[in-house]
Structure formats: structure tokens, C-alpha cells
Nucleic acid binder design. Structure first.
Lengths: 222, 222
DNA sequence: TACCGATTACTCCATTTGGATAATTTTTAA
DNA sequence: TTAAAAATTATCCAAATGGAGTAATCGGTA
């Protein structure tokens, strides 16, 4: 039995996709969420045995969007497969979703049969499901030589951390505590702490260890 | 009418693919070639009006292989679409073929229907045809473009951690706290803490962050 | 049998951390 | 120039962490 979670802010969209999934008896819908924050919250409260194997995630959502939710969750739950399911297909979104850790990218226009088949294949072979037109765009990303544009996007800051925050995350990764960091960069330990909490909020986590996991696995530190 | 050329050194392969193509009346086979050199030579001798719109190219061929033929031809004939059609799917070949200018990458195992449909789609929308398993490999290229520095994993337990300690270090890296780890592996949080402190002693550190730094950089965790 | 390492579990204590809130200054962008 | 964003500092509180010590249990070994 393949456990699936669906994250989409539009009620109707959720209904459409869950209807499609319900045609295959191997799929069980474990929960739905209306945005990234809701999803991360529900994940935290979920016993491991009930965690989804696959998460279908829309990108355009209020509060915490899909890219950012995938970024956090793919670090925190490395065994879960995150598949983008959206109507949008602009290059930047695709690129950022992949960078964030999505293993597949499906367009909502795909038929229920195709979606079900591709998800079954993901389960059986581990191959991420990708709509043909998206696949071609990804190919073009590889094809294009590295331009200044892509370089910018590459170090573009999935989590929107400020320079100071990145600096402090770096120091955190070295195992320093508030006081030590304060001494090192000549600010109060209280300020260091404030920065840390801001970092956690942007990464959608609530502890240093979780922040560091994301930092290491997403290459946020040198 | 879509003009197609097929390049493959094996006679039988050529027959299989041309048979598949012949099922669709929109396709015309303009010529066949047995290797890259043969292909380039025939192209040179061809009037522009007879040039193929699409070239299906095998990769493993004598004299001039598919990658290098695509590299040359995609520059000389920028309007022609080059589609790799092969049984091989190792990462390096895929990458080099794309870089050389291939707009699609199909596996020979694809059915005639799928191949015909994808080529029609290439003609109509310009989207390069890509077999799903190849698409997923390309996605992974975008996801982690660097590679190269694959951390050499230590079999020999540099820090002499016990099995239990390694297990707990693993869980620590996931951002769990004492309580959560205790629940997960059915022991008291006090014991978890005791293990942590033992780990710190063996790693010669005195905080979780420092332990995690060593764990990540020395490949102590998966 | 007696010893050893690994695992389990507990207590007491000081320090660190995460979170909420508030306020001021500096920098940046419109 | 004004408004917004980022950086700074602080305080209060509850929870988690690191450290030290003590001890019981189990499996294998000298």
C-alpha cells in the first residue's frame, strides 16, 4: 500500500487529484494539507509509520509555498518522494523545485491513468515521474552552457537567508554557541540568538540540528 | 510530411525502427546511415529540400559515434532535431549527448506507438522526446551538478562508535531530540542522553553541533 | 568465576537553547 | 526623502542540553 499526501490550497484541485488516485487501490491518501506550513505541521505530528511515501505538492500556495516546503521536508524526511503537481511550467519554478529536492514534476493536465502509472513506477523503480514537456525543459537546462543568469539562480538562496544569517549559519555549523559567535563577529550573543531564530523560521524548523541538516544537505554551508 | 533519417550500425536495429515509423503515414524515411561518418557524408550530398527534419541516432557506432556526429551536425544543421535512440542509458552518455546538441533521448525499448507519438509531438510543439527513465536521470543531473567529490566512506569505524551509538548519531542528524529518539527506539530519554555524551567523548567534542559537523563531513551518516 | 564492554536507567546541576516580544539603529530601495 | 528591510540589543520564561556520577543487566571471555 502506497501512502500518499496531497498538498494544494484549492479544494477543488485536491478533490480532482484524490479522485484520480482513488481509482488505484494501491494508493492510500494519508492526509491533505492546504499549504506548506500546514503540511510541515501535520508531518511533525505524524507517527513515522503513518508518514506518506509520496507527497504530491502544488507550488503556488499561501504562507509557505511548495518549493520552500519541499526544501525543508526533503532534508527532514529524506526517504519521502516529493513530486510537484502543478499547472505552471516556467523554467525558473522547475529549476527551483528540483534544486529544493523534488524527484518528479507532473502537470495537472496529465490524465489520471498517466499519473497513476507514473506514481506506481516511482514506487517500483524509484524513477521520478516527469511530464514530457517538463522533461524537455530540464534537458535544455543541462544543454545550456552555464550563463551568468543560471549562476545567479544557482546560489539564489532557496530560503531567502540574508547575508548575516548565512554567515551565522556557517558559524553554527562549526559547532559554536551564541556567545562564541558573538565574540567572533563583534555583536551581542542576544543578537546572534535572534538571528538563529530568524534562520529557523525561514527554514521552517525549530532546532539547530534540523537547521544544520538542511544546511548540509542543501549545500547552504561551505 | 515529416522527413526522418535513421543512423544505426546494426541492420536489424534499423529495420525495427523503420518498421515502427512506417506505421505512421506522416513519416517519410529519407535515408539511413551505418555510422556517424556515413551520416555526415550523406548529409553533405543532400539537397536542402531533402534534408531530414528529425534524425534518430544510435550512440554506439564504429568510425564516428553518435555523440560526436550530433556535435558536428547540430552545428552545421541547426534546424534539424537530433534524437538519440539507443539501448544504453548510463549517465555520462546521456550527459554528453545532450551537451552535443541532442534534443531528445529515447530508449529502444519504447513501443512504436510511444515513439511515433513523441516524434509527432516534437514536430508539433518542438518538445524533445525523452524516455521517462532518462528524464529522471537528467533531473538528477540538475539536482546535483557537481558530484566529483564523492566522499570516501569509512568502513573502519575511525571513532570506534558502537552500533547503538552510530544509530543514535544518525537519529541526531535528523534533528530529533532525546525524547523523540527514545520513543523511536524504545529506550529511556535518559539513556539516549547517556549515549550522546559517550558519542561526544569519542568524537572529542562537547556539543551536538560539533558532533554533527564531524558526522556530515566524515561521512558517518547516510 | 570474575572481568569487561555495551546497554540501559536514574539523579542533580549549571548552562544553553528556542520562543515571544519589544525597541533602536542602520542600510537599502522606492 | 520616505518607507521598508535588515541588523542590533534586551528581557522573561520554559524546555532541552551537557556533564558527572552511580548502578543494574547482559553477553562473551580470560
Amino acid at each position: 500500500m502506497i501512502r500518499i499526501a496531497v498538498v494544494d490550497d484549492k479544494m477543488n484541485n485536491r478533490k480532482v487529484i484524490t479522485d484520480k488516485l482513488s481509482r488505484n487501490n494501491f494508493f492510500t491518501l494519508v492526509f491533505q494539507a492546504v499549504n506548506g506550513e500546514d503540511f510541515l505541521q501535520q508531518m511533525r505530528a505524524l507517527p513515522e509509520d503513518d508518514q506518506p511515501h509520496i507527497v504530491l505538492m502544488d507550488l503556488e500556495m499561501p504562507h509557505v509555498d511548495g518549493v520552500s516546503a519541499i526544501g525543508t521536508a526533503s532534508s527532514l524526511y529524506p526517504d519521502i518522494k516529493f513530486v510537484v503537481l502543478t499547472i505552471f511550467d516556467d523554467d525558473d519554478k522547475i529549476f527551483r523545485a528540483i534544486k529544493a529536492g523534488a524527484c518528479g514534476y507532473l502537470l495537472k493536465e496529465e490524465s489520471g491513468e498517466v499519473i497513476n502509472e507514473m506514481l506506481m513506477n516511482l514506487w517500483e523503480s524509484g524513477a521520478g515521474p516527469i511530464s514530457p514537456s517538463i522533461a524537455y525543459k530540464i534537458l535544455q537546462m543541462v544543454q545550456k552552457p552555464v550563463t551568468a543568469d543560471t549562476v545567479v539562480k544557482n546560489d539564489d538562496n532557496l530560503f531567502q537567508l540574508s547575508e548575516r544569517e548565512k554567515e551565522i549559519l556557517q558559524l553554527l555549523s562549526q559547532g559554536l554557541e551564541y556567545k562564541e559567535i558573538g565574540v567572533k563577529i563583534f555583536i551581542s550573543p542576544n543578537t546572534v540568538k535572534k538571528h538563529c531564530i530568524s534562520i529557523y523560521q525561514k527554514l521552517h524548523v525549530n532546532s539547530r540540528s534540523q537547521a544544520l541538516r538542511i544546511a548540509y544537505t542543501k549545500g547552504l554551508i561551505d
